[in-house]
Design a protein around this nucleic acid. Structure first.
Lengths: 339, 339
DNA sequence: TCCCTTTTTGCATACGAATGCACAAACCTT
DNA sequence: AAGGTTTGTGCATTCGTATGCAAAAAGGGA
């Protein structure tokens, strides 16, 4: 039983070779069969493993990706986190996770700390970057990819679903199902996803010569969304359909409608969400929603980020990935609708 | 606009002092007002920040904690992750997250990689460590704290809720509510939490001279738990109450009971879970459950881990934290029950 | 077998910050 | 003002690994 962790020098001595030889064996550089064998044997004996930190120091690559995430209570993010983690692991990267409240200086601190740790890249999930931060990352040469949030003119790549198109599709679905008084509890106005879905939704209604009955900002928050639902249903011309800016809020809205206001879904009101988190298909909610294709979004995110790490010259890209509307039981379906 | 990140040497030159002076200013060691001022000014000018990796190399402390987590789809863990992250951040630590399937060699790889990154400590959430791994951590001098999972004889500290007592309390609650045919869909038999809750539950029933109608292993899995519910309800003497080993499975059970088997909860069957995740109080479920006091568990975890990091001689401790039964609408209440 | 090319190998140095040591400066004390 | 003490500072070294360079070994061709 060893008492201290062995270094490459220890291995070198035991194997009767130089430290550089050991390094080369473990970093995959050229080495003869015979030395590789000796080194491996000695290493096993000592329980040696290269020190990732030291390696990072010298190569300038830590193989760590920083992940900044804000809303962990929204099931979409744990799922995305898991997928991102697995995808990056396959590429030999690891994830340093930072929680941030969605406030500028919190994010600023968090990103600065990531820079201090010399991460090779940063993924922000539903978090915006100030231009100052953008600048700092640029100086440090750290590429940033924004997941599920776009930001014009930031110079960062972003991966989102096709939110405008998605909103439009929801509108079309509801209009074709014969709804007349259609309201929207939108995602936070300060986010591109919230704005885009909203815009697409309104445009989509316009295509049917409709106007939304009302549009309220749900701030991606359960309580705010519930309150918005109460407000809507208190109207004399209460809506017969509500499009909610994401599933997380939609669940709160459904709970409020059913258990507090005594509405039947979808008989009295249709409810549609956005994301298609796993919860959406649980029988208790059975939520009709626009699916964000997490798997493909994650793939695109990882590929974009690693591409930029390996070739810093690669220009930023904005990728939008389309997703289908998943019709379930929370919303009346248009005549002749086939999934 | 700088083009490359500045080092302490750059700052030293600009400030007209030695590199050691810069280091001392930033590491809080002694330095005169005047040099501190010069250094700070120069550092600001260059946008200098100490390189955490280099710092980690020399001090031997990375200020990174590794977190190994398995079931991210169970809302308990995202919540715990968020709390852990915040608590550690306050202590100046950061979290390197690793997902692991609950299979020995996956965990083994993951822990090994954490060791490679020289983490100062490891927290495992609902994951067991093989004795080989335990050994490797010991050699590397890395303390391990197990969160929400105990393991006898591992030599690691563990923080759990008082699972035996909790199971007992659930049994008492159901028996006193007048239930006669009480079944249990248990947490995975391979986990201490699953076993302890189950044991406490059975003991608690025995105190009332009851026996459980049946005990099935739900494997902490929604599908397995749903299947178990079907099995139970297919019996001639179907249960009038089911204690489910955690909330995550309880939701699946409730969905199955209500929407597939047409049962009324709690009129036909009472359902009780374990954890009290945020979802449990959503109106759709309104789940009676035994609360795991996450906040206090997290505090204890962080304190135990940091204590051991700062004083490696400190012996391992097993901490159990008691939590209350939260009576909601999914289970009939005993006569005269007051929260 | 000899010379030329290719592959291995060791040496020395670098990465960026922290720290023991010895010396210089500042502060007290009487 | 001299001696003693505390505080501040620079020099040199260290952490563990990777890598350019030059020398050594191995391989190949005629």
């Amino acid at each position: 039983m060893m008492t201290a962790k062995a270094t490459s020098l220890d291995v070198a001595r035991l194997a009767g070779v130089s430290q550089s030889a050991v390094s080369r064996v473990f970093s995959g550089a050229s080495a003869s069969k015979s030395t590789a064998l000796k080194v491996r044997k000695a290493a096993d004996e000592l329980g040696y493993r290269p020190n990732s930190l030291a390696r990072a120091m010298i190569t300038g690559k830590s193989r760590i990706i920083g992940l900044v995430v804000a809303y962990l209570d929204n099931q979409f993010y744990p799922v995305a986190l898991e997928r991102l983690s697995n995808a990056l692991k396959e590429q030999g990267y690891h994830i340093l996770v930072f929680m941030a409240e969605n406030a500028q200086d919190s994010i600023s601190n968090v990103v600065q700390e990531l820079i201090d740790y010399q991460v090779d890249g940063i993924i922000t999930a539903s978090v915006a970057m100030s231009s100052d931060l953008t600048q700092r990352c640029a100086v440090a040469g750290i590429p940033v990819v924004m997941f599920n949030r776009g930001q014009d003119g930031s110079g960062h790549s972003s991966i989102t679903s096709a939110n405008v198109e998605g909103g439009r599709r929801v509108a079309d679905f509801l209009a074709r199902a014969g709804h007349k008084r259609i309201a929207h509890i939108a995602g936070w106005e300060g986010s591109s996803t919230g704005r885009d879905r909203r815009r697409g939704f309104i445009e989509g209604l316009m295509d049917h010569n409709f106007e939304p009955l009302d549009v309220l900002d749900g701030m991606f928050d359960r309580d705010v969304a519930s309150q918005a639902a109460r407000t809507l249903m208190a109207r004399a011309d209460a809506p017969d359909a509500i499009f909610v800016g994401n599933d997380h809020m939609a669940f709160a809205v459904m709970d409020t409608l059913r258990h507090e206001l005594g509405c039947k879904i979808p008989q009295d009101v249709s409810v549609i969400g956005y994301d298609d988190v796993p919860l959406a298909q649980w029988a208790a909610y059975d939520l009709t929603t626009l699916r964000q294709p997490v798997r493909r979004m994650v793939e695109a995110t990882v590929e974009t980020l690693i591409g930029k790490i390996e070739d810093p010259e690669r220009p930023a890209q904005k990728i939008e990935i389309d997703g289908p509307l998943i019709a379930r039981g929370s919303a009346r379906k248009p005549e002749g609708w086939t999934q």
